[in-house]
Measured scan of single mutants.
Amino acid sequence: RYTFRTRGPEQMKRVVEWARRQNLSYRVEVHGDEYIIHAE
């Protein structure tokens, strides 16, 4: 189980790509310009 905090969509997309390659399920929360990605 991982939690990532990123700023801006570019970093968020990179984390999502990584999670997909690992076959993890993930969800993204948006708080202003901060993205929180939960993957497991």
Rank of each mutant, 00 (worst) to 15 (best):
R1K: 13
R1G: 10
Y2D: 01
Y2K: 04
T3V: 14
T3P: 02
T3E: 07
T3I: 14
T3R: 08
T3G: 02
F4S: 00
R5D: 02
R5N: 04
R5K: 10
R5A: 04
R5G: 02
T6H: 02
T6L: 11
T6F: 08
T6W: 02
T6M: 08
T6A: 14
T6K: 02
R7P: 04
R7Y: 10
G8S: 15
G8A: 14
G8R: 14
G8E: 15
G8Q: 14
G8T: 15
G8W: 14
G8I: 15
P9L: 15
P9K: 15
P9A: 14
P9M: 14
P9Y: 15
P9S: 12
E10W: 07
E10N: 07
E10L: 09
E10K: 10
Q11I: 11
Q11L: 09
Q11T: 09
Q11H: 10
M12R: 03
M12A: 10
M12Y: 07
K13Q: 13
K13V: 07
K13P: 00
K13T: 08
K13N: 09
K13F: 10
R14W: 08
R14T: 07
R14M: 12
V15W: 09
V15G: 01
V15Q: 01
V15T: 03
V15R: 02
V16S: 02
V16Y: 02
V16P: 00
E17N: 08
E17R: 10
E17W: 07
E17S: 08
E17M: 10
W18Y: 03
W18S: 01
W18R: 01
W18N: 00
W18Q: 01
W18F: 03
A19Q: 00
A19S: 03
A19Y: 04
A19E: 01
A19F: 10
R20E: 12
R20I: 15
R20M: 13
R20N: 07
R20Q: 12
R20T: 11
R20V: 13
R20W: 05
R21A: 13
R21E: 10
R21V: 06
R21P: 00
R21K: 11
R21T: 11
Q22I: 05
Q22G: 05
N23W: 04
N23Y: 05
N23S: 08
L24I: 05
L24Y: 10
L24Q: 01
L24C: 04
S25M: 11
S25Y: 12
S25N: 12
Y26W: 13
Y26A: 04
Y26H: 03
Y26Q: 01
R27A: 06
R27Q: 09
R27D: 05
R27K: 10
R27S: 12
R27E: 08
V28M: 04
V28K: 00
V28A: 02
V28W: 04
V28I: 13
V28L: 05
V28Y: 03
E29I: 12
E29N: 04
E29F: 12
E29K: 04
V30G: 04
V30L: 11
V30S: 07
V30Y: 09
H31C: 12
H31S: 12
H31R: 12
H31G: 03
H31W: 11
G32H: 05
G32N: 07
G32W: 04
G32C: 04
G32L: 06
G32R: 05
G32V: 04
D33H: 08
D33C: 08
D33R: 07
E34V: 13
E34G: 09
E34Q: 08
E34P: 00
E34T: 12
E34M: 14
Y35V: 05
Y35T: 04
Y35D: 01
I36V: 12
I36K: 02
I36S: 02
I36H: 04
I36W: 12
I37W: 02
I37Y: 01
I37S: 00
I37V: 07
H38N: 05
H38F: 14
H38G: 01
H38E: 07
A39S: 03
A39P: 00
A39N: 00
A39R: 01
E40A: 11
E40N: 09
E40Y: 15
